[in-house]
């Protein structure tokens, strides 16, 4: 995984709450067996609407999605994270993420930055007033910044320490766990014999 320290890109306002994973990418797009090519399915139902934010040229090339609360609810499909990444998003900002979505983002290298609801509101106002506005998300200092002058936004965001550390270092989770192989082996030695197995010796 690539290291993530700071990212600056065009902010895209998604004025919706409860954006579930079936909206992010409907099930019919989940049939690929690779991790790429999911950008076509991203918000596919909404993209038929010419006024949908991703269809507006001012936000073309956007990489920081600013969404309402309860983003990523529903399915565990990591394809939702891949679809956002395949499309070009590096960061999603929301007041509240569903747990599995946030976990998946951390593993796949998409930054899920949780901010106060008021911050989302101010970011929406700012980037809608001036489409194309750049948003900077600094993982080192956990801050989000956008605009200048009286309407400028500068605030902190939440992300758990462990995920932040892994993203900053670009670390592979499995590698970390396998370095604790001895602990796993000793745990296995103590498991009761009556625990079920799918294949019997």
């Amino acid at each position: 995984m690539d290291k993530f320290t700071t990212h600056t890109g065009i902010g895209v306002p998604l004025r919706r709450s409860n954006v579930d994973t079936d909206q992010i990418i409907p099930a019919v797009y989940l049939k690929r067996v690779t991790r790429d090519g999911f950008e076509d399915g991203l918000f596919s139902a909404w993209r038929n609407d010419p006024s949908f934010v991703l269809n507006q040229p001012a936000y073309a090339g956007g990489s920081v999605l600013v969404a309402g609360p309860d983003f990523g609810t529903g399915s565990s499909r990591e394809h939702a994270v891949w679809a956002l990444q395949n499309y070009g998003f590096r960061v999603v900002i929301s007041p509240r993420f569903a747990d599995i979505f946030r976990g998946n983002s951390g593993k796949a290298g998409l930054l899920a930055a949780q901010v106060d609801e008021k911050v989302v509101q101010r970011l929406w106002d700012l980037i809608e007033a001036e489409p194309g506005t750049q948003v900077t998300v600094d993982l080192e200092s956990r801050t989000v910044r956008a605009g200048s002058g009286p309407d400028a936004v500068e605030d902190s965001f939440d992300i758990d320490d462990y995920t932040r550390w892994r993203l900053l270092e670009g670390l592979d989770d499995i590698g970390i766990t396998l370095s604790h192989e001895e602990d796993i082996v000793s745990y296995e030695a103590g498991r009761p014999a009556w625990k079920p197995a799918t294949i019997r010796a």
Binding site: S76, E78, I100, N104, D173, I174, I176, T177, I184
Partner: peptide, 18 residues
């Protein structure tokens, strides 16, 4: 509980999950 594909890989490889 449900997990994403990166976690599926993690469990396959280690039978554990952080």
């Amino acid at each position: 509980f449900g997990i994403g594909t990166s976690e599926v890989e993690h469990v396959l490889a280690t039978q554990t999950l952080p």
